[in-house]
């Protein structure tokens, strides 16, 4: 009887754990601001400066708002790089576009005639400045094997070729804007 109870309880625990989906989905490390802070500063909502403190050193991508080319357009990152990334990746369906964080994520896309493989791209605009290292693109590729899509490597140069495309488009856009302003 006791053994039966043990077996039942093990079964119960196992089913509870299974019902809770995976541990990794439910585990994360809290940010520092999730702990109590007894500073009087912590208890006021928002900041007069619009961000947490005045940046005196470094280049924080996380909280950049406006400034540079982005200021006029109301987006958080360089507007030329953002526009150029949209143009360059527009042949794929877009899944998500966050102009404040500067993240562009496409959905899976199969080039015409190649149904057995598909691609997905993620572009990160890294700041307000129009710089050659201001955009980073990651390409993901999958192949259909049997009934399942399987991750396969992408050749090393692909992402940087796409980045070059974005940069040249951004340069184009900028020279157009400068010409228009004259």
């Amino acid at each position: 009887m006791r053994r039966l109870r043990n077996i039942l309880s093990v079964g119960l625990v196992a089913s509870v754990l299974a019902g809770c989906s995976t541990l990794s989905e439910n585990m994360r490390v809290p940010e520092i601001d999730e702990y109590n802070n007894d500073s009087r500063r912590a208890r006021v909502r928002g900041r007069l400066t619009g961000e947490d403190g005045i940046l005196i050193f470094g280049n924080d991508r996380g909280s950049q708002r406006g400034g540079g080319a982005g200021e006029q357009s109301g987006i958080g990152v360089n507007a030329f790089l953002w526009r150029a990334s949209l143009d360059t990746l527009s042949f794929m369906p877009l899944a998500s576009a966050d102009p404040f964080g500067g993240v562009l994520i496409t959905d899976w896309y199969s080039p015409p005639g190649t149904t057995g493989e598909r691609f997905r791209a993620t572009a990160y605009i890294l700041g307000r400045q129009l710089r050659s290292d201001g955009v980073r693109i990651a390409i993901f590729r999958q192949e259909l094997r049997g009934n399942a899509w399987v991750d396969v490597p992408v050749s090393a140069g692909t992402a940087s070729e796409l980045e070059d495309q974005v940069l040249s488009r951004a340069r184009e856009l900028r020279s157009q804007a400068t010409a228009a302003a004259r």
């Binding site: 400066t49 005196i56 991508r61 490597p153």
Partner: peptide
């Protein structure tokens, strides 16, 4: 000939901010 694409964590240069009340 493809190499395994290894997406590294984005390193963030340190920032120093001054705040207060």
């Amino acid at each position: 000939a493809a190499l395994l694409s290894n997406v590294a964590q984005a390193q963030t240069a340190p920032t120093v901010r001054v705040g207060g009340y």
